[in-house]
Structure formats: C-alpha cells, structure tokens
C-alpha cells in the first residue's frame, strides 16, 4: 500500500524582492525551496511509512528543475519520486493542478493501492489551500484538512483517525480510507537527511510523467484548464509613514506621542 506526499517547489518568498519601478516580483536569482508546509506533509508520510510499513511515494508537478526538490524528498526517506512535468501543465491554477495530481495518484493506485495522500496545508507562493481538497474531491477520497495529529491509520478496518486544529479548538475525526490529509506545520518536526541517503538520492531515477504518459485532455490542464487567471501581481501600496518625536533621547515623550496617536486613530480608548 502507498502513502503519497504531494510537494511543490516554490520561490523562497522571504528572499523575493519587489522591483520598485514595475512593482512586480523580481524572480531571477531567487532560490527555490520545498514549500515549507509540504516538508511537514512529506515528514508525515515518512512517519506513516515507518509506522505502518507503507511505501512512500512523493509527487510534484512543476518545471524540470523541480527534480532538486524531489531528490531532497528521496534523501529524507521517500521510496519513489514522480515528477509531473510538461509544457502543457504550465500556468495551471489550483483547479488544473489538482486534476494533474489526482490523475497521477490514480495511476499510482492502479499499480499499488493508495491508502493515504498527504498534502501541506497551503503553499507560500499561492496561499490558496485548495489543491489538497481539490485532489480529494476529484478522487472521491475522504478529506481531512488542518490536521495536526494522525492518531491511527487502520489499514484492515480501512479508516483513519486524526485531530484537526480548527479555530480555537481541536476536533478528532474518523474517516474511511483512502483519505487525503492536509497537515499544518505543527504536526511534526521534519527529519534531517543522512549522508548515505543523500548520496543515494543524487543517483536515484526520478520517474518523469509528461502528458504523453498522462494523456490528459489539454483543455483541462495548464493555463487552458484554469478557471482563474493572474491579471497583475503587485505589492499593496502603503501610506507613507512619518517619524514622530525622538524615541532614542526622550522615550517618555515618544510614548506619550504614540498613545496620543493611537487614541486619535480610535485604536486605543481611554
């Protein structure tokens, strides 16, 4: 049986700068990393592998350079990696992306039964948190989001019990397998790769599934298959601030000034 982790390679958004003249993101020279949420999804899939003897497969859709991220996943302990890469997949929104990922998981399932799919809660570049649910819906899997603990996967009774972190409380839920579990970052502390695994991962073969393999309807994937289109990327304008008082030499006066301003703006009440 398989546990499948879906991961995405994203630009390190903390290192993305905004071009002051065009107002767009400067992408060149920005390093790519594994989406921080997905590191926890991968880790959880590896823990399920260790706990229940499942085979861990990691799947990612993206340009060929995504290979780096998949090799990292293999170094961490995934048994197999599948790269979904084709020009036809490019420009996809969450609708089209979840289709390709779901079809890939269906293909995996044909070969060996999938018990659990683990996704990160969201990505740091898109922040939609829709792909995981999209996969679950398309495959008809149980859908458990915001999971911060997987209590038990019962392969014989074919059910999973997990804890969801919703608003200010937790709820423990039970659902039939197969299930898609989208995890929050608190669920685990990711492991660190050993050197022998890194070396193994450097030489491992990564399965490349392009659309010749996947044979998906071109109108349903990539830009064409996307229901949403990005019109413009910009950083929200921020009103110019002003420096009031001299906090360094007269902190008391600065504090008074600050409190006065906060009252004036109806943020503080007396």
């Amino acid at each position: 049986m398989l546990v499948v982790a879906c991961v995405k390679q994203v630009p390190d958004t903390t290192q993305v700068e905004v071009d002051p003249t065009t107002g767009t993101l400067k992408r060149e020279g920005v390093p790519f990393i594994m989406n921080p949420f997905d590191i926890h999804a991968l880790e959880e899939s590896l823990r399920l592998k260790d706990r229940y003897g499942l085979r861990a497969v990691v799947v990612s859709m993206g340009p060929p350079s995504t290979e780096v991220t998949l090799r990292k996943a293999l170094a961490l302990g995934a048994d197999e990696a599948v790269l979904l890469s084709d020009r036809a997949f490019g420009g996809a929104d969450t609708l089209a992306t979840s289709l390709v990922l779901a079809e890939a998981i269906r293909r995996l399932d044909e070969r060996e039964e999938v018990a659990v799919v683990v996704c990160g809660r969201q990505t740091i570049d898109g922040d939609t948190a829709q792909v995981g649910p999209g996969i679950a819906t398309r495959l008809g899997y149980s859908q458990l989001t915001l999971v911060d603990r997987i209590d038990e996967v019962d392969l014989r009774a074919r059910k999973v019990r997990a804890r969801r972190k919703v608003g200010g409380w937790h709820e423990t839920v039970e659902a039939p397998l197969p299930a898609m579990i989208a995890v929050v970052r608190e669920i685990n502390r990711p492991r660190y790769p050993t050197v022998p695994r890194r070396l193994m991962a450097e030489e491992a073969t990564i399965a490349l599934w392009n659309n010749e393999v996947m044979k998906l309807d071109e109108n349903k994937i990539g830009l064409k298959g996307s229901a949403t289109q990005v019109r413009r990327i910009f950083s929200p304008e921020r009103a110019k601030g002003e420096i009031l008082g001299d906090g360094l030499s007269n902190p008391e006066e600065a504090a008074h000034l600050l409190i006065g301003k906060l009252i004036e703006k109806d943020i503080l009440y007396l």
Partner: peptide, 8 residues
C-alpha cells in the same frame, strides 16, 4: 551521528 544517523 550527524552524517550516518541525522542525530543531533
């Protein structure tokens, strides 16, 4: 410890 077992 670090390289063979990622223990630290």
């Amino acid at each position: 410890l670090v390289e063979m077992h990622a223990k630290f």
